[in-house]
Design a protein around this nucleic acid. Sequence first.
DNA 1: AACACGATCTACT
DNA 2: GTAGATCGTGTTG
Length: 197
Amino acid sequence: MAARARKLPRSFYNRPTLEVAPELLGKYLVHATAHEPVSGRIVEVEAYVGQGDPACHAARGKTDRNAVMFGPPGFAYVYFIYGMYHCFNIVTEREGFPAAVLIRAAEPTDGLSLMEYNSPGKRHHELLSGPGKLCRSMGITVAHSGLDLTGGEIYVEDRETSVPTIVTGSRIGIRSGTDLLWRFCDADSGSLSRPVG
DNA sequence: AACACGATCTACT
DNA sequence: GTAGATCGTGTTG
């Protein structure tokens, strides 16, 4: 990785989720796997903010599944969905306030061969263009839930590239809270999970 | 113990 | 555009 790359510290995540989410666009999600590092430039995220947000997994209180969202910021919240997919989130805000940013899409940067192995037949721009595909290609599972993202296995890097043009929209795949424009996308990316509506 | 459903994706019409 | 895959979790009985 480049010398100017900087791993995001816990203080980055210990802020309001609606500030953290758009700032994650253009940063690089890295998974240092046992084989080779895989990474992608984040181009689409969604914010899930506390018990007042009806679409947040923590809206109805703490359970075994969502407990990590109630913990300190800068940890991974990964859940299993639809019987076959995983979704990767980063916990934000102070301990006790349940919030997270769902990483929905990224552009592949490092470890292309491993990601192609994990997702056979996918075009490059489709390897990470959705939360389920992103986890599958990058090798992220519920085994990583609770992982400290200031450590060396999974983390986010600022490589000081140009700041993306950001567009917002309604969050995908939810039934309530659709009035909130808490989906943030890089307007110029060809790797979004869906066009911005 | 049984059930309904989900922050998705693919294949097929 | 829409149906089907597939199973852990939370809720209900």
